[in-house]
C-alpha cells in the first residue's frame, strides 16, 4: 500500500465522520458571520470606520476569518479526543501505516473544512455588499495565508488534543487558544491602535501576519497591516516576510503535532 493510499483512506474516513456531525461544519460559522454582518456595520455606524478609503465592514469581514479558522480547527481537534476515547483510534494505531499519517489525514480534512467555511463567509460578506478587490495574485496571497494559518491552528489543536486527557479540559482551553489572540491580531482594528507593548505582542502572533496577508490579498496594499508590522517600503517584500512567518509556524506546529501524537499513542 502506498503512503498516498493510506492517507486518502484516513482522510476519507475523517470526511465521512465529519459529514455525519453537521454541527462541526455549521457552528463555527455562526460567530464570524455575526461579527461580519451585524457587529461590524454597528461599529462602523457608531465609530465612523477606519478613517481611510477602506470600508470598515470589509476590513472586519476578512478579520473574522481569523476567528473562523481557529474555531473550525479546534472543533476538528475535539474529534481526535472523541476518536481516542470512544472511537476507532486504537484500530488505526494497530494498522500497518505510519502514525504520522493519522495526523496528516485529519489535517487534510481540517484544511478542506476551513476552506469551505471561509468561502461561505466571504461569499456571504460579498452578498451583503462588502467591497473586495479580487485579483488572481490577491486571491493567491489570501489562499496561501489562510491555508498556512489553518495548518498552524490545526497543529495547535491536534497537539492540545493529544496532551489534554478530557474533552471538558480541551473545551475549556478553546477561548484562550482560538478567541483571545483574535482581539490582539488586528481583526477589528489596525494593530497600531493598540498600546505600544500590545502592538509588539501582536507582531509575534501568526494570526496578525495571516490577517495582514489576507487583507493584502483582498483589500490591496492600503487595507493590510503589513506596514504596521514590518515598517518597510515594499509591501510585497513585507508580504513575503509575513508569509514566511506563517509558514514557519505551520511547519513547526504540524511537526510538533505529529511528534506529540505519535509519542502519546505509544504508552
Amino acid at each position: 500500500m502506498t503512503t498516498l493510499t493510506a492517507l486518502s483512506t484516513l482522510a476519507g474516513r475523517r470526511f465521512q465522520l465529519t459529514a455525519r456531525t453537521p454541527r462541526q461544519i455549521f457552528v463555527p460559522l455562526l460567530t464570524p458571520i455575526f461579527f461580519a454582518l451585524v457587529v461590524a456595520p454597528a461599529l462602523q455606524s457608531a465609530l465612523g470606520g477606519l478613517g481611510t478609503h477602506i470600508d470598515y465592514t470589509t476590513f472586519v469581514a476578512v478579520g473574522t476569518v481569523g476567528l473562523l479558522v481557529p474555531l473550525t480547527t479546534i472543533f476538528a481537534g475535539l474529534s481526535v479526543i472523541v476518536d481516542r476515547d470512544s472511537g476507532a483510534q486504537p484500530e488505526l494505531l494497530a494498522a500497518p501505516v505510519p502514525r504520522s499519517l493519522l495526523v496528516l489525514g485529519n489535517l487534510i480534512v481540517a484544511l478542506t473544512l476551513s476552506a469551505l467555511q471561509v468561502a461561505v463567509l466571504i461569499a456571504t460578506a460579498t452578498a451583503y455588499g462588502d467591497d473586495f478587490q479580487v485579483t488572481a495574485t490577491g486571491v493567491l496571497w489570501f489562499v496561501g495565508a489562510a491555508v498556512l494559518f489553518a495548518a498552524f491552528m490545526y497543529g495547535v489543536a491536534e497537539t492540545l488534543a493529544s496532551r489534554i486527557p478530557k474533552q471538558e479540559e480541551y473545551i475549556g482551553a478553546t477561548p484562550a487558544v482560538a478567541i483571545l489572540p483574535w482581539f490582539f491580531a488586528g481583526a477589528l482594528f489596525p494593530i497600531g491602535a493598540l498600546p505600544g507593548a500590545l502592538t509588539a505582542f501582536a507582531k509575534v502572533l501568526p494570526l496578525t501576519h495571516a490577517l495582514a496577508l489576507m487583507r493584502f490579498g483582498l483589500l490591496g496594499d492600503g487595507g493590510s497591516s503589513l506596514h504596521d508590522i514590518w515598517g518597510m517600503g515594499s509591501a510585497t517584500g513585507e508580504a513575503f516576510l509575513s508569509l514566511a512567518v506563517v509558514a514557519l509556524f505551520a511547519m513547526a506546529f504540524t511537526a510538533l503535532a505529529i511528534r506529540v501524537f505519535t509519542r502519546a499513542a505509544l504508552r
Partner: peptide, 19 residues
C-alpha cells in the same frame, strides 16, 4: 473500538484498505 456513525461494511472496508 468502532466508528459508530459509519456502517458495519464501511468499518470492515476501512480495515481492509489500511491493511
Amino acid at each position: 473500538v468502532v466508528d459508530r456513525e459509519l456502517s458495519g461494511r464501511r468499518n470492515l472496508d476501512l480495515h481492509a484498505r489500511l491493511w
